[in-house]
Structures are given as structure tokens and as C-alpha cells.
């Protein structure tokens, strides 16, 4: 299982860097494929064969082109991808956003932590629980 990559779509380069760093600083050796928006992620996902489906998707909500909600909807309406765990990773703490994400089929909603130490802890727990 662990050879399969983690996919992360986030338009914020800093957040992509910090997540990568958090995995590295926790000595976790997952390969992470990064995308700058939802469309890129879908383009990567669609031609993939079943056997190379990702381990986990980390999805930002607000992104250009296709946002996290659209991506979530498309992935969850495809039976082939039903089992992929999807974690929403967003700055928004608005109750509306959280409820919508779960309704669209997210497995977990994580508000981006405000310090690096917290981020490290969160990524460690993601690893332990989902990977």
C-alpha cells in the first residue's frame, strides 16, 4: 500500500512546501504528488489504471479552475475512486464549508494549523490513521 502516492492539491506553494517538510521532519517516506489546482489533480487521476490509485488525497477547498468541492463531487460520483480517503485541508473554519465537505463525501476535515509544530503533529496522525 505505502508505495502508492499521496496526492495533494493546493494553490498555495508555501503550504505544499510545509506539508512536504512536515512529512520529511516526521521521517515519513511517502511520495507526495503536488497539484496547483483541482483540474491538474483530475487530469492526473483520470488516465490512471485502477492498480495505481492513490493512497490518500489532501484537498484544499478554495483553488482556481476547479475548486475542492467540484473535485470532491467528481471523485465521489465515480465508483472506481469511492474508496480513496479524501482529507479536506483548508484555512476555512466556516461551519458551512465543513458541513458541505462532509456531505460531498470527504472523510476528514482538517483546518490548516497555525504553527509548524501543530502541522507536524497533524501529519503524523494522518499517517498513523489513514496510511
Amino acid at each position: 500500500m505505502s508505495d502508492k502516492p499521496i496526492l495533494m492539491a493546493d494553490d498555495d506553494a508555501d503550504d505544499r512546501f510545509l506539508v512536504q517538510a512536515a512529512f520529511e521532519d516526521n521521517n515519513l517516506s511517502h511520495s507526495i504528488v503536488f497539484f496547483e489546482d483541482g483540474e491538474q489533480l483530475l487530469n492526473y487521476l483520470i488516465p490512471e489504471e485502477d492498480n495505481s490509485a492513490p493512497n490518500l488525497i489532501l484537498l484544499d477547498l478554495n483553488m482556481p479552475k476547479r475548486d475542492g468541492r467540484e473535485v470532491l463531487k467528481i471523485i465521489r460520483t465515480n465508483d472506481k475512486w469511492n474508496d480513496i480517503p479524501i482529507i479536506i485541508f483548508s484555512t476555512s473554519n466556516a461551519p458551512d464549508d465543513i458541513v458541505t465537505a462532509y456531505q460531498l463525501g470527504a472523510n476528514c476535515y482538517i483546518i490548516k494549523p497555525s504553527s509548524y509544530e501543530e502541522l507536524k503533529d497533524v501529519m503524523l496522525s494522518v499517517h498513523k490513521f489513514w496510511l
Binding site: 490548516k112 497555525s114 504553527s115 509548524y116 507536524k120
Partner: peptide
């Protein structure tokens, strides 16, 4: 709540990481 918090979060995260690394 959102846009102002973002750069602050980055400042904290990067200075944190600087210390830990």
C-alpha cells in the same frame, strides 16, 4: 479572518520550522 490570518500562519509556520530544523 481569512486573508490577514494567512500570512501570519506562514510567518509562524516558517519561523517554527526554522527553529525545529
Amino acid at each position: 479572518s481569512h486573508d490577514l490570518q494567512e500570512p501570519l500562519r506562514k510567518i509562524r509556520s516558517f519561523s517554527d520550522r526554522l527553529v525545529s530544523k
